[in-house]
């Protein structure tokens, strides 16, 4: 088995790099879009700082709709959009589009939940000293919710590591695609086992780093 793995090392390396590339951009875009969206959902939800019931219901439904798409279907459904954006619907960069579109509302929902968990008393205190909505968001919500947001990013990373394996279908590559091509199509169970073990280790690393960072940021206890 070791011999075969060493033989395939260049391919494995390439696949891992592709996976990291997909994860990096997906997480980045999901955070850039999801954190503001989640914050907006929190702010305008009924009973919150700047309640806007109508807009909330529309956004809430939109988030749910995108989240309910099975990833594979979403990926295929938005091919025209991806082509317009990237110039192609195939390849690693092209997969980032559906991955991000799928991850952003997930991230938004998690952020909304984290902010709901922030002590309402702290928000009330901030209002009492004349903080603007922007100041409340930056100085209270993000500061008090920061370890929760790191936790959300960790969860997104793990679940989209799994989604990224579907990328192989549109030539996206990555470690999941490698497992399918060598482990399954070529009947090389050792390669499959090795790859799955690699993914398990990856998830463990992401989870552990996430936990350490979240704990370091949390001063509640």
């Amino acid at each position: 088995m070791t011999g075969r793995i060493i033989e395939l090392a260049p391919q494995i390396n390439k696949a891992l790099l592709q996976t990291f590339y997909m994860m990096f951009w997906t997480l980045g875009i999901a955070a850039v879009a999801g954190i503001p969206l989640g914050t907006l959902l929190y702010l305008i939800r009924p009973g919150s700082v700047m309640e806007k019931r109508g807009i909330y219901l529309v956004l809430d439904a939109l988030v749910n709709i995108v989240r309910s798409f099975p990833f594979l279907i979403l990926m295929v459904a938005i091919i025209p959009f991806t082509r317009m954006l990237i110039g192609s619907s195939l390849g690693t960069s092209a997969v980032i589009v559906p991955l991000s579109i799928s991850a952003a509302p997930d991230f938004a929902r998690l952020v909304e939940q984290v902010l709901i968990e922030v002590d309402r008393g702290a928000v009330e205190m901030a209002r009492s000293v004349g903080a603007s909505t922007f100041q409340i968001v930056v100085r209270v919500l993000y500061r008090e919710g920061r370890s929760g947001i790191v936790g959300a990013a960790t969860m997104i990373s793990v679940s989209f590591l799994s989604y990224s394996t579907v990328a192989g279908l549109v030539g996206g590559g990555g470690i999941g695609d490698f497992a399918i091509r060598y482990g399954y199509y070529r009947y090389e169970p050792q390669v499959m086992i090795f790859t799955v073990a690699l993914i398990i280790i990856l998830v463990q690393i992401v989870q552990t780093v996430g936990r350490i960072v979240a704990r370091a940021l949390d001063k509640r206890i």
Binding site: D119, G121, V129, G130, R143, R146, D218, R220
Partner: peptide, 30 residues
């Protein structure tokens, strides 16, 4: 509101901020 202080039953301190940063909160806001 900056000139009307308020204290609460459950103190409403920021848990992720030091005592110093809690006290400076309204000053930073202003």
């Amino acid at each position: 509101r900056q000139k009307i202080g308020m204290i609460f039953q459950h103190f409403n301190l920021l848990h992720n901020c030091t005592v110093f940063d809690n006290v400076s909160f309204p000053l930073a806001v202003a």
